[in-house]
């Protein structure tokens, strides 16, 4: 079963030194890879680099920034392969941002074929 862990936090929040955070993320990623649960994952550039794309009546509409203003912004993700939600949560809680932001865990939709 695959789960996407979406990492949300206030991107203006800069209490955690970047060096330290990157180190923690590297360590976590290595641990998840060694355990065989890590299928993928990436950090994202901040929301001021975002472009929102919509197609309306055949016409392309572009706008600046994320589609909704929120208190916490999507800053990255991991894709895990886990037995069940309990296991996915046990990994999500170790993501360094979980200490001050929030991690949304969503199952990847499975199609019966």
């Amino acid at each position: 079963m695959q789960y996407l862990a979406l990492i949300y936090s206030d991107e203006t929040f800069d209490d955690v030194p970047m060096e330290q955070l990157f180190g923690e993320y590297r360590a976590f990623t290595e641990k998840a890879m060694a355990a065989g649960v890590m299928l993928g994952g990436n950090p994202l550039e901040p929301t001021n680099t975002a472009t929102t794309v919509r197609m309306r009546e055949g016409e392309l509409l572009l706008s600046d920034g994320p589609f909704a203003e929120t208190k916490e912004q999507l800053g990255g993700y991991y894709l895990f392969e886990c037995e069940n939600l309990e296991e996915a949560v046990s990994w999500a809680k170790q993501i360094p941002t979980a200490r001050y932001g929030s991690i949304e865990v969503r199952p990847i939709m499975a199609f019966d074929d």
Partner: peptide, 14 residues
């Protein structure tokens, strides 16, 4: 069903 919340008695800590 979809998020696969396990139907089991959890291990010691949980």
């Amino acid at each position: 069903k979809q998020a696969k919340i396990p139907m089991e008695v959890p291990g010691r800590d949980l």
